[in-house]
């Protein structure tokens, strides 16, 4: 292997590590501003709050890597959450309920894969349509009811601790780790990147592009289902529309993490950073007492800033690449 001389900044830019830098910088700044911030309890809180988002974002990264998008995460999450609540309230055992719910999520992923891969409808629109269908089914199932009163064991998913660490976060990190192996290290992951970077070349090279598309949407659907289950456990309640706010947040987390909407570029690690940054912003505003009404303005502004920074970084990177070429 040729040894390329790499300075500190080179590594910083090329690996996207500067995004982690942003996260750390935010933590440092917060530690100075608020005395409640730099506490173990608060960090555990941030982890707990970010868990659902982590699962959703990590699992949906694949779609964006293939130059697609899954706009049905929110809808499928709502439906799955409600379905899970329904099963539990109808005396289905917890493992079976969880399994059935995940199957529902995966079948919606299947539909997305079919629409995107076979029917070839642009993913932005087709998954959006599917989202409406899932939402509608949730409404039919629930009406305006709220399911609650789930078994205590189920709620432990969210409230439990293992060695002082929230169980829900351990689950989230487990899922994220699995996604990392799948997208970053596996043969399948390489196919995902190839399909996203150049679909035609992937096809000519003998990569099964159709199967790849199917699988990423199934994985994303699976993630939406898991997100729904965890959210129901966290709230001890399920209602229609519970996934709505997660839709754009999950996509935002992936994009803030540096995954390109143009496909073929990005990482699960980035999505984790993105999810943590977004959660941290909300946590910080709560600590600082920013009124709830103003919070979304600040979040929006920070998302725009983060993407702006990314664009600038890419320019610097490109200039450096040209300089060394």
């Amino acid at each position: 292997m040729e040894k390329r001389k790499k300075d500190f900044f080179g590594i910083f830019f090329e690996t996207g590590l500067y995004r982690a830098g942003i996260l750390i910088a935010m933590c440092v700044v917060m530690s100075f501003i608020s005395k409640d911030f730099f506490k173990v309890s608060n960090f555990l809180n941030i982890f707990r709050q970010s868990s659902v988002l982590l699962v959703l974002a990590a699992c949906a990264t694949g779609c964006i890597l293939t130059h697609g998008i899954d706009n049905s995460i929110g809808g499928v999450m709502s439906l799955c959450g409600c379905a899970c609540g329904y099963f539990l309230n109808h005396n289905v055992s917890i493992p079976v309920a969880v399994l059935l719910t995940i199957l529902i999520g995966m079948s919606f992923g299947c539909i997305n894969g079919l629409l995107v891969g076979v029917v070839k409808i642009p993913p932005f629109v087709s998954t959006y349509g599917v989202s409406y269908i899932a939402n509608g089914l949730a409404l039919i199932l629930m009406g305006s009811d709220i399911f609650s009163g789930f078994p205590k064991t189920f709620r432990t998913l969210a409230s439990g601790n293992v060695l002082g660490f929230p169980l829900i976060t351990i689950i989230a990190l487990g899922v994220t780790g699995l996604m990392y192996l799948l997208f970053q290290r596996s043969k399948f992951g390489k196919q995902v990147y190839c399909v996203g970077a150049n679909h035609t070349t992937a096809k000519y090279s003998g990569i099964n592009t159709l199967l790849t598309l199917f699988l990423v949407y199934i994985i994303s659907g699976c993630g939406a289902a898991m997100g729904g289950i965890l959210q129901v456990a966290r709230q001890s309640a399920a209602q229609a529309g519970m996934g709505d706010t997660f839709q754009m947040t999950a996509i935002a987390a992936i994009v803030i993490g540096g995954t390109s909407m143009a496909g073929g570029e990005g990482s699960v690690f980035g999505a984790v950073i993105g999810a943590l940054i977004l959660t941290l912003i909300v946590n910080a505003m709560n600590l600082l007492g920013v009124p709830a009404l103003a919070q979304s303005i600040v979040t929006g502004a920070i998302i725009v800033l983060a993407v702006l920074l990314d664009v600038q970084m890419k320019k610097i990177q490109a200039a450096r690449a040209e300089a060394t070429a």
Binding site: L181, R185, S186, K187, F188, G189, K190, Y193, C194, A197, N198, T201, A202, Y204, S205, G206, I207, G264, E265
Partner: peptide, 25 residues
């Protein structure tokens, strides 16, 4: 034929990597 923003090595591997490994790339 190529993915221009991938490395020379990744491109050379494009058609063959399916056979090189079970799960991991």
């Amino acid at each position: 034929g190529l993915i221009l923003r991938f490395s020379v090595a990744s491109n050379i591997a494009l058609s063959a990597f399916r056979h090189w490994s079970r799960f991991f790339y």
